[in-house]
Amino acid sequence: MTRKWLYGVTLTLVLTALWALLSGYGLKQPLLSLGVFSIVVTVWMTIRMGLLDGESTPYLRLRYLAYWGWLAREIVKANIAVLRIVLAPVIEIKPVVTRTPVTLTDDVARATLANSYTLTPGTVTMEIEEGGFILHGLDESFCGQEGFRTFERKVKAATGERGA
């Protein structure tokens, strides 16, 4: 119950900061009542829909930043490979559908992993199952299993894998 209160307070603070930033007025008088109204309605609706938990509270874990840096390099590398295929005078590809086993159990970690696979061009997560993901690869060369293992290891290190 206390955790729920903590999430609610965090959400309210973040929304207030966002509103102050985007309105351009800061927290000064004009339209302030409208801002308060919209924040209260948003928090109330979040509680009513039962979405208020650790996933819905926007916060950034610092360990993620290192992971994002590594991910950015991977994205650039894969992008160059895809652009080379697309801009070649004759496109020659062999698309594959493959299944990769995933041992992560934490929801946030699994979502991060699936989104990372999707973000690197050349592989897109098509279906999420209990013990693995089904991926579509633009070409065979994007679908080496050891590449997938590296991703999983990095995500495991970034999220700390607190278990379900």
Partner: peptide
């Protein structure tokens, strides 16, 4: 240039699943 190349890929690639790679992800970078 990358966005434009991704758009060219959407026109040139053969089926939906391959177009998806060009449309979605090169756009993001």
């Amino acid at each position: 240039g990358i966005v434009l190349a991704g758009a060219v890929g959407v026109i040139r690639l053969p089926d939906f699943y391959t177009r998806m790679h060009a449309a979605g992800m090169t756009d993001t970078l």
